[in-house]
């Protein structure tokens, strides 16, 4: 049984290796087939680190983008599986770090929206209602910052997706969204006061 699995794995590796070698010469069909074929394998690796479906899919896409970027580093005389597995594991761990940072920065407290026992809280709530509105504040942002906020915060796209869609680098998107949040905080905070 184990021997059968080994033969299957070795055959699969040979097929993937051939497809990648063809992809390196510019064969788009071979490349598309390879990417299709490796997705379940990549997803299985990522699943060992992540639970939610959207995060898993986000990292699968991150892995595919990385494969595309580093496809010239694959040596067809070597097995393909360790190469793709190393990329999948690294991106999966990078994803863990990224979300840990995000989770630490974000708070979720349902009651915080509903507590009005403290009159000061109610007053603040009413004051915030008077604020011209978040939409206006976002509309007033510079175009790059507005696009970053809309994609990453309002439409909840992943960095990889937003990068692919906008053509902007991940680093640039992070900087723009950071500046936008800072600008919104400054503007809304001023109006509340």
């Amino acid at each position: 049984m184990a021997a059968g699995k080994d033969i299957h794995d070795s055959e699969r590796d040979k097929v993937w290796s051939r497809l990648m070698a063809a992809a390196q010469t510019g064969d788009q069909h071979a490349y598309a087939r390879l990417l299709h074929d490796v997705v379940p394998y990549v997803r299985a690796i990522i699943r060992s680190h992540h639970r939610t479906a959207d995060r898993i899919e986000d990292i699968v896409q991150d892995v595919l983008l990385t494969v595309h970027r580093v496809r010239h580093t694959y040596d067809p005389s070597r097995p393909f599986v360790p190469w793709i597995a190393a990329i999948a594991r690294r991106r999966s761990i990078d994803g863990l770090r990224r979300w840990r940072r995000t989770d630490m920065a974000e708070l979720f407290d349902q009651q915080a929206y509903e507590t009005f026992a403290d009159p000061r809280a109610k007053r603040e709530s009413e004051t915030s209602d008077r604020v011209a509105g978040l939409g206006d504040a976002i509309a007033a942002l510079p175009a790059k910052q507005r696009q970053a906020v809309e994609m990453l915060k309002l439409r909840e796209m992943s960095l990889a997706e937003a990068s692919g869609k906008s053509g902007k680098s991940i680093a640039a998107l992070k900087v723009n969204v950071h500046r936008a949040i800072k600008a919104l905080r400054a503007r809304l905070g001023k109006e509340v006061r």
Binding site: V60, L64, T73
Partner: peptide, 24 residues
């Protein structure tokens, strides 16, 4: 929001010949 399928199609369409790195 781009699906994984759409991403694969986009990447495959961008596949140009690449110069392989020599062994380390």
């Amino acid at each position: 929001m781009e699906t994984t399928e759409q991403l694969i199609t986009r990447l495959a369409a961008q596949a140009r010949p690449v110069r392989r790195l020599r062994p380390p």
